[in-house]
Amino acid sequence: MVINGRLRWKLLIGLIAAIAFDTMLQIVWKTAVVDTPEVNLSVSASFAAFFANPLFIGVIAIMTLQFFNWLMVLGEADLSYAKPIASLSFASVPIMSVLLLHENFDAVEVAGVICVIAGVFFISQTKPLTSETKLTSRPEAS
């Protein structure tokens, strides 16, 4: 898992991808919802409108990529390590919302983003995997 005290490239790339996929997903989803006209439609017409919008198809595609990436990440690290690192998207989403969607960002949100980044920094100082033997040796059924 850790080579010379450093993360494996596969895990590092997977964690960066997890943050990027979640950030993209939230931005594309928000854009798709804003672009959808408010019309009271039947359920079947709503589904047709949903699948007609390419942004919603993009949301599904990003969710699929996110799912398979997350499977790989969890195979490389403990959930208690990986999930807090992936929560950097709680910092990247507001930043990208300001840059791409021109949303407002106040001092309280800045403080929140700083707290998230600080928390992730502290968690990143721990070992990504509790024990190699815990993953490789599984208890046998009796």
Rank of each mutant, 00 (worst) to 15 (best):
N69F: 00
I13W: 06
G112C: 10
W29I: 08
L101Y: 07
K30L: 00
V2I: 07
M1P: 14
N104G: 09
H102G: 01
S89H: 12
M72R: 01
V93S: 04
N69M: 05
E76L: 15
Q66L: 09
C115G: 12
I85F: 08
V113Y: 07
L41M: 11
A141E: 14
L55R: 11
D106N: 15
V59W: 05
F90A: 08
E76G: 05
V73P: 06
F121Q: 03
V110F: 13
A32H: 05
P37V: 00
V59Q: 01
A20E: 05
F121V: 12
F105D: 01
V120D: 03
N53L: 04
P128M: 01
L7M: 13
A86E: 11
N53I: 01
A17P: 04
A77G: 10
L88P: 04
Q66E: 10
L135I: 15
F50K: 05
G112E: 07
L15V: 09
S87T: 08
F67N: 13
F21N: 03
R6D: 02
E103G: 04
V73N: 04
A118G: 09
S97R: 08
E76Q: 10
E103C: 01
P54K: 04
A49L: 12
K83E: 07
S92T: 15
T36M: 12
V110D: 03
K10V: 15
L25P: 02
L129M: 10
G58F: 11
K127S: 15
E109I: 04
L79K: 00
G119Y: 03
S137K: 13
L74F: 13
L74Q: 11
K134R: 13
H102S: 11
Q125N: 10
T126E: 06
L135V: 15
L100S: 04
E140Y: 13
V2K: 02
F67K: 09
W29P: 00
K10W: 13
T64D: 00
K83I: 15
V120A: 14
L15T: 07
K134T: 11
D78A: 01
I123R: 07
F67I: 06
V113P: 03
L99K: 02
G112K: 12
R6L: 11
K83F: 15
C115Y: 05
V59N: 00
V59K: 01
W9A: 15
G112F: 12
A18W: 01
T64Y: 12
V116W: 01
I16T: 15
C115M: 14
S87Q: 11
Q125A: 14
T64G: 12
E38S: 11
A45H: 07
S42C: 09
M63N: 15
L101S: 01
S131H: 12
V98N: 00
I117D: 07
A118N: 02
I3S: 07
I3Q: 09
T64S: 10
L71G: 09
A82M: 10
L99W: 14
V98M: 10
V2H: 00
N53Y: 06
K134P: 00
T130Y: 03
L99V: 14
E132W: 01
E103Y: 09
S142T: 13
A20R: 03
M1N: 07
E38Q: 08
K127Y: 03
T126H: 05
L55G: 08
S44R: 13
E109L: 08
L100N: 03
W9N: 11
S92K: 01
G75N: 11
S87C: 15
